[in-house]
Design a protein around this nucleic acid. Structure first.
Lengths: 223, 223
DNA sequence: GGAGAGTGTAAACAGCGTTAACTGTCAGGT
DNA sequence: ACCTGACAGTTAACGCTGTTTACACTCTCC
């Protein structure tokens, strides 16, 4: 019954992956399915609905990448594997990575469908969980896992976005190094260690007063 | 002579800002200009060309925000002001922020127009300059300014993207704190200090061997 | 005064998402 | 066995899109 629906969805993913958002038209899809365009509306509300399901499929694929990272033995390794999984997903399925984020903006900045919002929240939660267990096991300095997760996620997403847009003019191999490097640079500040603890205390003791270095950390100050 | 061209471009910016990418059509623009659609093609090659000029205008506005940050007296304050300027620009002109990044992806991930690529490179260079002078003046730990700049830029861009997409369900005031906090978290690892130096040395001395914490920093290792 | 550039027009084309009206097919109930 | 209704497809059409073609008007310059 819903067999044809699955078939259409499969064709839709294929079409999107090879033609992109611009090249994705209902008529082309219908042709690929072997049917006329209006028939598609028996199974999907409209083009947006159809694309939303494609985004859902993208999330499924990302999920499988992330899930694989859970098989690593230690929290630190699971964290590391999660970062790599995100990288691999983006590099191997750039169009999926793209539509997961571009879809919402493509509709103007109006409402994000609740379904999509939840899937995205799940990605965030996965990151938070990795951060939390790293804090619990003493690999990351204790902090608000939600905020640390966001910092890391935003960084990874931003970096991958810039690379996929071709603004980094680095070949893939160089980018991989760059990605790891960038992560390492951030972690140096997040990682637990005797120095980290002292540094933390140092900054806390200065909170409120102007920093002697002349840098105000964007007025937010240290929590 | 090119007077009408300026007029059209102005209307194009207005139309884009209020209608978004979806609502931006040549016929609507023509109507707003007070002319029929084909007349637009006397002044611009096509819709993409027109939108590219809108992106150019977006870069001009961003430039004015960033430039203002240069009036701060110390490198650290200029750095901080640059981060704030980027934030302000994104919050006050979300549609400009959006199209600057969405435009390329909107064409599929084919070639980015050289003109746009250069403007984007200029933003990156501005960041790099702020980072470099902070390193020179001892506010930031010495490192490759290009890479540190990228890390910071990617982070800021990622964070703003996620917020503007409505995924952070925080009101603007809360997001501002979040943005500063996130920056502070990263800077804690980038800032110069006696502890930072020791931490750096500590990490360097361990480079190559597996980290006792069980975290491999995505295999990239510390440079 | 004619030539030619510059800028506008109306008409048209192909493509788009989507809808309306109609057709065939198959399952279930009386 | 026959009618009913759901289901899945069709063709034709509407209004929109970006863009091109052919034509007209108005200037400037020689």
């Amino acid at each position: 019954m819903t067999d044809q629906r699955e078939h259409i969805l499969g064709c839709a993913c294929d079409l999107y992956l090879e033609a992109g958002l611009e090249g994705f038209s209902m008529r082309k899809l219908a042709q690929q399915v072997g049917v006329t365009a209006p028939a598609l509306y028996r199974h999907f509300e409209n083009r947006e609905d159809l694309l939303l399901q494609v985004v859902g499929e993208a999330h499924n694929v990302l999920g499988s990448y992330l899930y694989r990272a859970l098989s690593a033995p230690t929290p630190g390794q699971r964290f590391s594997a999660a970062g790599e999984a995100y990288l691999e997903f983006a590099l191997e399925h750039p169009r999926y990575f793209q539509i997961m984020h571009a879809f919402a903006e493509h509709l103007g900045l109006s409402e994000v469908p609740a379904e999509l919002e939840e899937r995205t929240a799940a990605v965030k939660r996965f990151w938070d969980d990795r951060v939390r267990e790293c804090m619990d096991s003493g690999v990351l300095r204790r902090d608000d896992p939600d905020r640390v997760g966001l910092t890391l996620w935003a960084h990874a997403y931003g970096l991958l976005s810039l690379y996929l847009r071709g603004l980094l003019d680095a070949p893939e191999s160089a980018f991989r190094v760059l990605y790891s490097d960038s992560f390492a640079r951030i972690l140096r500040g997040l990682g637990t260690s005797e120095y980290g603890a002292e540094l933390d205390h140092h900054l806390l003791s200065h909170s409120g007063e102007p920093d002697s270095s002349g840098i105000s950390v964007l007025e937010g100050g240290t929590p």
